[in-house]
Design a binder for these strands. Sequence first.
DNA 1: TCAGTGACTCCCC
DNA 2: CGGGGAGCCACTG
Length: 126
Amino acid sequence: MGGEGAFRKKVLRIISRIPRGKVLTYGQVATLAGVPRAARIVGGILYQEGIEKKLPWQRVLNARGGLSTYRVGMGEAQRRLLEAEGVAFNPGGFLDLKKYQWIPSEGELKKWKISEETAYGILENW
DNA sequence: TCAGTGACTCCCC
DNA sequence: CGGGGAGCCACTG
């Protein structure tokens, strides 16, 4: 654990920046970190270090706006944490990504060396 | 070094 | 809406 991969570091940094009440999907985090198809890795990293490193792990969801943590027994905890931040789930247990998705500032994108074009491609609510 | 793994995603039924 | 299957790829032992 606590490896030193560049991708891992970027993932941890990006997640640590997601504001209260906002979310990103695993795939979006992976893309912002430079490896668009490494969504599974993001989940793995959070599973290992999310709580240990005091990250806002609850703010990362699957591509449908649902919680993937039910399969590891963390679903209810994640839902409660999000609701405590003012996030409302729809009857199906999903949340509206267009409404809650975090849009990083231009400065942040520049820091991560992500073009606005790339960001526009993966973020719904630009 | 390398096969195995999986908090993912997309597609199809 | 639900389930199955095939890709994916950084990380791990």
